[in-house]
Amino acid sequence: MVQKLDTLIETPSQTAGPYVHIGCMPTYAGNAGAYDLEIGESPIADGAQGEVIEITGEVIDGTGWALRDAMMESWQPDAAGKFPGQAGADPKVSGYCRFAADSETGKFTLRTVKPGAVQARSGAMQAPHISVWVVARGINIGLQTRIYFEDEDNSADPLLNRIEQQNRVQTLIAKKTAEGKYTFNIVLQGDNETVFLDI
């Protein structure tokens, strides 16, 4: 028997299930008032610097059906590319949001400010993006992805350039539909399947 490592193994994930909102978004579950303050209601406060944008979309399964029970979380820096807590970060940007697919229509909306560019560890500049984590019934481990923007220069982004099949890059790019409005669908499986990340 070889020596034992003193490292631990990560706790295995399990699905968030259909009632994830009870614990994470009580008002959505029909339980308004369970907490005095729910977290992640908005990633920005009034007066946040930068362009306020609205991203709408659906989470779509392998049959083309929009999930009605998906919950998402997003994480991003402020308009200048600073994450909350960093020196000089915009105090009106918490950077964190929880949002869910509508239980009747499956549509979600994320209202935030457009993030600034952030340097990767390699020194390369990453194009502006929002990190998104999707959980739901039927998803055994949360799916990570990113939202980029079609009206930004994404050509030098290190992550997008790592995608071998460049025809898949467009699955990570939000389409602009009007001033400050974007659409971004998350396709779990099948044609135009979203690129999901392991980082």
Binding site: G62, W75, V118, R121, N140, L143, R168, Q189, L197, D198
Partner: peptide
């Protein structure tokens, strides 16, 4: 999980600030 699981593999890369 059958219709809600990606068919493509995940894109792996080193973590960064995000």
């Amino acid at each position: 999980s059958v219709p809600r699981s990606p068919r493509w593999s995940l894109l792996s890369l080193e973590s960064g600030p995000s």
